[in-house]
Simulated assay, not measured.
Amino acid sequence: MDSLKIYSQSDIDNLIIHRKGERKLGENVGIYNPNDSSSIDKISLEGLKNSSAKFVLLGIPEDIGVRANSGVAGTSTTWRPALVAFLNIQSNQFLNGKEILVLGHFEIEEPEDSEIDCLRVKVTEIDNLVYPVIEKIVAAGKIPIVIGGGHNNAFPMIKGTSLAHKKAIDVLNIDAHADLRDQEGRHSGNGFTYALAEKFLENYFMYGLHQNYNNEAILNQIESNPQLKAVFFDDILKGIEEQNFFTGLSTIAGLEIDLDSIQNVLSSAETPSGFSVNDIRRLILTNEKRFSYLHISEGATRLLDGRVSKLTSKLIAYLVSDFVKAQA
């Protein structure tokens, strides 16, 4: 049965690499620890509010949504190595670790049938597993930081945040793809379509779209719908960019980072042309916007086709630590 595994202190301690004279973030992070917190229903608002941490870190290690979109499996491999990399960052004057509560990760069973239609049904089940947890975290006044997993999980991130605030929210998505494919059953390519249709998403800001990899129907949507606002990576290369793009975001907004927007990062849609790692780090560190959540998706440490990268986990650790520093 699908569930949320809530981490104990020993779960965290087992991931820390100790070194004499040093202290790691993992030695300072908090855990959710009311008695018998073994299910989603037992995560209470009061339990979350009792933590002094501002940020709640959790993982969705799955690639069902990617496969449901005919992509290469592998995003399920990211969460644990990324968590290890993050917990072993130095605790120092720049980042202490006490700002973060590590909640745990979702354990998602494989569907018995791997046909596309069955995978898409399973993605809907994942949606319904994830969004209530996000809703509780946001309602408790915390900022969820979620490491995926496929970009299908943008939908429950948006839904949970919207329900907590009782209004539709804005989203900034740094991505090569708009993920506005049809409502043809849930998958990693239509999370924002469903969020718009179900009125959880108000304004959708897309930053870094690639002209080569968004179909004509999606481009027509962007041109005709005032809720959709896009900056193309091709225009950024030409020095053509809307100067006040980010200032249009409302006071309640989520930040989505699809790692396939960064060049040479292992993902189902890995690209040789895209933002540099430092472009994204700079954007996070210098953006004055206060975000309601961070969702990092589509990265992999190992893909089903045999490609492997040890750097994805460290990249994610950089992005998470940058976000906490900037938002704190």
Rank of each mutant, 00 (worst) to 15 (best):
67 R>D: 08
68 A>T: 01
68 A>M: 06
69 N>R: 02
69 N>G: 06
70 S>N: 15
71 G>Y: 04
71 G>K: 11
72 V>H: 12
72 V>E: 08
72 V>Y: 09
72 V>G: 04
72 V>T: 09
74 G>V: 15
74 G>D: 00
74 G>R: 14
75 T>M: 13
75 T>E: 05
76 S>A: 15
76 S>D: 07
76 S>N: 12
76 S>C: 12
77 T>G: 12
77 T>E: 04
77 T>N: 13
77 T>H: 12
78 T>C: 00
79 W>T: 09
79 W>Q: 09
80 R>F: 04
80 R>D: 13
80 R>K: 14
81 P>C: 15
81 P>R: 15
83 L>A: 03
83 L>G: 01
84 V>P: 11
84 V>L: 06
85 A>F: 11
85 A>S: 15
85 A>R: 01
85 A>T: 14
86 F>N: 09
86 F>H: 02
87 L>I: 07
87 L>M: 05
87 L>T: 09
87 L>G: 13
87 L>P: 13
88 N>A: 00
89 I>W: 10
89 I>Y: 03
89 I>N: 09
90 Q>P: 08
90 Q>R: 12
91 S>L: 10
91 S>I: 02
91 S>K: 03
92 N>A: 12
92 N>W: 04
92 N>K: 01
96 N>A: 02
96 N>P: 02
96 N>V: 11
97 G>V: 11
97 G>D: 08
97 G>P: 02
97 G>S: 15
98 K>Q: 14
98 K>G: 07
99 E>A: 15
99 E>T: 00
99 E>G: 01
99 E>I: 02
99 E>D: 04
100 I>C: 01
100 I>H: 11
101 L>V: 03
101 L>Q: 06
102 V>C: 04
103 L>N: 03
104 G>T: 10
104 G>W: 11
104 G>F: 08
104 G>K: 13
105 H>L: 02
106 F>M: 14
107 E>V: 07
108 I>S: 08
108 I>K: 02
108 I>A: 06
109 E>S: 01
109 E>K: 14
109 E>T: 02
110 E>V: 13
110 E>H: 08
110 E>C: 06
110 E>L: 11
111 P>W: 12
111 P>H: 15
112 E>W: 06
113 D>K: 01
113 D>H: 13
115 E>C: 04
115 E>P: 00
115 E>V: 10
116 I>T: 08
116 I>S: 05
116 I>Y: 05
117 D>V: 05
118 C>Y: 04
119 L>K: 12
119 L>Q: 05
119 L>A: 08
119 L>F: 04
119 L>G: 05
121 V>K: 14
121 V>P: 03
121 V>E: 03
121 V>G: 02
122 K>D: 03
123 V>I: 10
124 T>I: 04
124 T>S: 11
124 T>Q: 00
124 T>F: 13
124 T>C: 03
125 E>F: 01
125 E>P: 10
126 I>E: 09
126 I>G: 03
126 I>D: 04
127 D>K: 08
127 D>S: 08
127 D>A: 10
127 D>Q: 03
128 N>C: 07
129 L>A: 09
130 V>H: 02
130 V>G: 03
131 Y>F: 08
